[in-house]
């Protein structure tokens, strides 16, 4: 499950833009392509997209970024791998869990995500996520644990992608 790098991409006024990459080990041309491909056409909150760029493979979880004063934005949390030997379902769960928890605690903003990106990367490397966001909020996720609610949500989302138009 050890990714090469994690990227955070958001929608800017001109289009998709890279907010942060950790660790910053990817060549610029790959990063540019990841930014473009991280959110496919018609991507919506909760979508999970995978694609390849040369030898690199990446999967991105697309989510809405709530905003109090303006409209919500859309962003993508992307994990880049150098081969296909990773569990995309587990990755999706980790990302979905992280975003859901941040939203629950009203801290699902780009600043927080930028800050926790290194911790998220280390969590994926170790197979266990433990991120302290504030004195009262700590995210914990064991990648072996399967939440029943997640399974239901995946089932419901799966129809749209696989079958329903």
């Amino acid at each position: 499950m050890k990714p090469v790098s994690l990227c955070l991409v958001q929608m800017g006024t001109k289009g998709l833009e890279l907010v942060k990459v950790y660790p910053n080990v990817l060549p610029e041309e790959i990063l540019n392509q990841i930014v473009v491909k991280s959110m496919p056409f018609n991507a919506k909150n909760g979508d999970f997209a995978s694609s390849t760029i040369g030898d690199a493979v990446f999967s991105g979880y697309i989510f809405s970024v709530p905003s109090e004063n303006e409209r919500d934005n859309i962003a993508s949390l992307v994990a880049v791998y150098n081969n296909m030997n990773y569990d995309s379902n587990a990755l999706r769960k980790v990302f979905a869990f992280t975003i859901a928890e941040l939203k629950k605690n009203n801290v699902a903003d780009i600043e927080t995500l930028t800050k926790i990106l290194p911790n998220l990367y280390n969590g994926l490397v170790n197979g266990r996520l433990k991120i302290k966001i504030s004195s009262v909020i700590t995210l914990e996720f064991d990648m072996q644990y399967k939440d029943e609610k997640d399974v239901d949500l995946e089932s419901l989302n799966g129809f749209g992608k696989d079958l329903w138009k």
Partner: peptide, 10 residues
């Protein structure tokens, strides 16, 4: 209904 930026075309 709140929205997020449109990715391409809806």
């Amino acid at each position: 209904k709140s929205t997020v930026p449109t990715m391409g075309v809806n």
